[in-house]
């Protein structure tokens, strides 16, 4: 570690990144949380989520320091209540219209309502999560613009519908480029450089080969997507950069997902925390970080943001955190 941590001849260095959590520990947290959530009829859920995130962040180490999650149950509870209210209003209107024998308007209200809140949820979620995440006391931040996100979203959905799904690849890359490009790590800036065309053909190839190989290629397809997500990510600080590279192979994914599946089946789902822990361990062990940024020069630049409504909405709508 000492040796690889030193800058090499060209001034580039490796930054170790790893997940140090253990399935058994995470299992304990998950079980206690589940128990308290059941006893309180679900009200404990935001606190449970905060504890879980705190553990997962606290056991992820970058360049010898742990990440810190500062979100609290109370913040998330407020967000939780607001998110429930918003979603209840949408469903309430839907049922009202159906009750008034206007089912088509009702369904329309529901779909439009849900579509309208997805960008809102993504925006709020990134803003909250990033602001509550820090490393060596330096906060992350999301500086995206809500109306920009709406534009990308509306354009993306319309074109995806018109092209019967083909535009989906470009839509997905546009979202990723935009969102990740608005993430700050102190005064350092993330960027993502995905290309819709490359992503599209990668998925076409993956889809076809998966059919031809009766599903076996799915693991290699998964690897391609994962690597594409990692390899195009970059962090810049002044004129210095660090780059991310995935070393995962299709065989790695095969091993990971098959064992995950077996754990899930043979433990009747109780082994889920182990799956989370070993997947995170896998993901971080396959990411190589190299570059010339000196993190000692990183400076606090992002504001606190404590409104968790968007994060809770994403949770309820089951939108994955990284789009």
């Amino acid at each position: 570690m000492e040796i690889i941590n030193q800058p090499n001849a060209v001034g580039k260095r490796f930054y170790p990144i790893s997940f140090k959590g253990k399935g058994a520990e995470y299992f304990g947290i998950a079980i206690v949380n589940l128990l308290l959530t059941i006893i309180t009829l679900g009200l404990y859920y935001p606190w449970a989520k905060a504890r879980q995130l705190q553990y997962l962040y606290g056991t992820t180490e970058f360049n010898d320091s742990r990440f810190e999650f500062h979100g609290t149950g109370a913040e998330m509870f407020k967000g939780f209540i607001k998110a429930i209210l918003i979603i209840t209003v949408i469903y309430g209107l839907t049922f009202l219209f159906i009750y008034m024998r206007m089912p088509i308007i009702g369904i329309l209200v529901m779909y439009l309502g849900l579509f309208a809140i997805i960008p809102l949820a993504i925006h709020g979620s990134y803003k909250y999560r990033m602001s509550r995440t820090s490393w060596r006391g330096i906060r992350f931040g999301y500086r995206g613009d809500r109306s920009e996100l709406y534009k990308i979203f509306i354009k993306g959905i319309l074109l995806t519908i018109v092209t019967i799904g083909i535009y989906g690849a470009w839509f997905s890359m546009n979202l990723r480029n935009y969102i990740l490009g608005k993430i700050k790590f102190g005064n350092a800036q993330f960027s993502y450089n995905g290309d819709g065309g490359t992503f599209f053909w990668m998925n076409v190839k993956g889809y076809l080969l998966t059919i031809v190989t009766l599903g076996i290629y799915a693991f290699w397809w998964q690897k391609d997507i994962f690597n594409y997500y990692i390899d195009n990510l970059k962090l810049s600080h002044d004129d210095k950069n660090i780059e991310f590279k995935s070393t995962a192979t299709g065989g790695d994914f095969f091993g990971l997902l098959i064992v995950n599946f077996l754990i899930l089946i043979f433990t009747l789902g109780i082994g889920y925390p182990w799956i989370v822990a070993r997947s995170l361990k896998f993901i971080f062990s396959k990411i190589q970080v190299t570059g010339d940024i000196d993190f000692n020069n990183l400076i606090q630049s992002e504001e606190n943001y404590t409104d968790a409504t968007g994060d809770d909405m994403s949770d309820m709508l089951d939108i994955g955190f990284v789009v």
Partner: peptide, 10 residues
């Protein structure tokens, strides 16, 4: 110690 202004370890 991290002083919350810079990521430099103290």
């Amino acid at each position: 110690f991290y002083n919350g202004v810079s990521a430099r370890p103290i």
